[in-house]
Design a binder for these strands. Structure first.
Lengths: 208, 208
DNA sequence: ACCTGAACACCGTTCAAGT
DNA sequence: ACCTGAACACCGTTCAAGT
């Protein structure tokens, strides 16, 4: 048998099929291996940054060979996805709680609570905005908005998509620019205004 | 003499020094070479996407050797930066015009004009948000806002940074998701609301 | 069932040698 | 002054071979 294709994977997307583990561990030994690989990925990510993250480095740090890594993750992207998804999931927990806590409040109060929760969740290591995380986050906000008394959002999906993107992207830009505390505080104030402004407008606007 | 370091450039940033051309052409021949390389970069970018853009492919398409490419661009990033910067510059022209045209208008009118100009500029091939382009865009908006009669923006830099990021990031997400015409239209409406809402709030808010 | 690591087909970048 | 292209030090990914 010959190697069919040593082609470098040029696809950057993390479509579901490419992102699932290649196989699930059935023995205790391999479960530990997978854990070690995930752990090593986080370490390498934090120590050297995403740019320097290589499969060789990760597997070395995990104490296994590259081949083993590829037994559980079909490619480097899947590995990154798995780890980051878990990380962001924990951040979104805070947003979900804030949304739940603001059920039935005024739109202004909702805007405030949600925005601050989002910011305080500290999107530090922000990488690609992951689809699943995004879904959870927007779902929580939509559910909250539907509970606002006396307010209707004619196109709540778009409203929340835009709002979520604005919050996430702005925090990403600010944090990546190595912002000072004062700059973060200013951004914080401004994002609350943005959220309040958009939500009050969107809840009143008449649309065709 | 031995090769001092064949190290792959791991730095992703496009700091000014790394981004300037390595040398400037002094003869007609090399001016044409640089032009061909820039042209080839755009072609490869459009045909195969940023993922598949390699220095070898670009130089091949340009009809020169890799070595020649590296005589004018210190690394791949600088090449990309040069080309994208020029591209986005043309897009920002539209924003600058819209801002200039709305001098002295109401804040609501400003929000509307500016947002629609931004969207209509079609951030299609949106790549990294380039610093210089960003600067020009935000500068135009700030200048316009300062001309609004009866409105004061206590922290206009932050206001505009947040607004610009929100607009750019949202359009990027929407266009990259292969949005339908209807989705683009909905986003359009929503972004106008966002801009209006934020700007009216930011212009009235009292801050410490 | 799980792991290894040499091998493959790419990369970005350099530099002695040419015109 | 400008260009060439083999060479270097990396990559991501695979697969025959081992336990």
């Amino acid at each position: 048998m010959k190697k069919s294709s040593g082609f470098r994977s040029h696809s950057a997307d993390a479509s579901p099929r490419l992102v699932k583990p290649r196989k699930t561990p059935v023995q205790a030994r391999s479960a530990e291996t997978v854990r070690a690989i995930r752990e090593a990925t986080i370490q390498v990510l934090l120590e050297t940054g995403a740019q320097r993250l290589t499969t060789t480095r990760v597997s070395q740090r995990a104490g296994v060979s590259v081949g083993t890594l590829y037994q559980y993750f079909p490619n480097k992207n899947a590995l990154l996805y798995a780890v980051l998804n878990e990380h962001f999931s924990r951040i979104i927990d805070a947003l979900e709680q804030a949304c739940a806590a603001s059920h039935g409040c005024s739109v202004e109060q909702m805007a405030r609570t949600m925005t601050l929760a989002f910011i305080d969740a500290k999107l530090h290591d922000a990488q690609a905005i992951l689809v699943d995380v995004r879904k959870r986050g927007t779902a929580a906000i939509i559910k909250m908005l539907r509970s606002a008394p006396g307010a209707r959002f004619p196109d709540v999906e778009t409203t929340v998509m835009v709002l979520y993107t604005a919050l996430a992207a702005t925090m990403r830009v600010v944090l990546e620019s190595g912002a000072s505390k004062a700059m973060v505080a200013a951004t914080r104030r401004e994002l609350v205004l943005l959220a309040e402004g958009q939500l009050t407008r969107a809840s009143l606007a008449q649309r065709g």
